[in-house]
Write a protein that binds this DNA or RNA. Structure first.
Length: 229
DNA sequence: GCGATGATGAACT
DNA sequence: GTTCATCATCGCA
């Protein structure tokens, strides 16, 4: 089926994705939006700090990040920008705190959060999250039913589909204004680092960061090492 | 133009 | 555990 963004009715919008200022709509605690300065650092420093943060899309819903991967501008053959800028990866060179969306295998939309200063190609790939709040639209976008939360967002393509992303999100700045934001509710769970997944080169680099013991990972770690934070 | 490739996911055994 | 559908993008002719 074709993944689509459910056009929320007013009532449903409030239930599933209302702006969580004060968090009343979702029953979440007060949160602050991560500013662009948070992302204006090397991706391998940003990535572990993103674990436990909340990715939220207005009118759709969101969840807690449990798995991300860092892609670096130098000495990283797995990074799309390793061979310079192309029309596809141009957004990766954009300012920090913006979004890089690309199509994988012709079908999957993968969400990256752009790091470093403008002109430096670095990003964090969102690989999995734990759905929070009203998950009805996330599940609907994935063609799933109630109780299927575990498989709704446990994979990079699944996250993109559940959030109803499309290429129109490329280069968009994260924040309440755009309707897509990363929020901090103060939770800082234990983070482990492992090798990246699905990359044909550079996989040996321990640049995959996971929330230790989460049920919502795209796959369990082969071997993980704790990250001090 | 055209062929090769791939930061996947689902359906298998 | 393995296989394979699927197609946008890129590099090359």
């Amino acid at each position: 089926m074709i993944p689509r963004v459910a056009e929320p009715t007013p009532g449903r919008r409030a239930a599933a994705g209302g702006v969580p200022s004060g968090g009343r709509d979702l029953g979440w605690p007060s949160m602050r939006v991560l500013p662009p300065s948070f992302f204006a650092r090397p991706a391998d420093l940003v990535a572990p700090e993103l674990i436990g943060k909340i990715l939220w899309r207005e009118g759709v819903g969101g969840g807690r990040l449990v798995e991300v991967e860092a892609y670096l501008p130098e000495d990283d053959p797995a990074c799309h920008a390793h061979r310079g800028m192309t029309p596809r990866n141009r957004a990766m060179f954009g300012p920090p705190g913006t979004v890089y969306v690309y199509v994988s295998y012709g079908v999957h939309l993968l969400l990256n959060l752009v790091c470093e200063v403008e002109g430096v190609a670095a990003a964090v790939l969102v690989r999995a999250m734990e759905p929070l709040g009203d998950t009805s639209i996330l599940l609907e976008n994935r063609g799933l039913g109630p109780g299927d939360e575990r498989s709704a967002t446990s994979g990079p393509g699944r996250v993109g589909q559940a959030l109803g992303l499309d290429m129109g999100w490329n280069s968009v700045e994260l924040g309440f204004e755009s309707g897509l934001a990363v929020l901090d509710d103060g939770v800082a769970p234990p983070v482990e680092t492992t090798g990246r997944i699905g990359v044909s080169s550079g996989g040996h680099l321990n640049l995959r960061y996971i929330l230790a013991g989460s049920r919502y990972l795209s796959r369990p770690p082969r071997c993980g090492a704790p990250v001090a934070r």
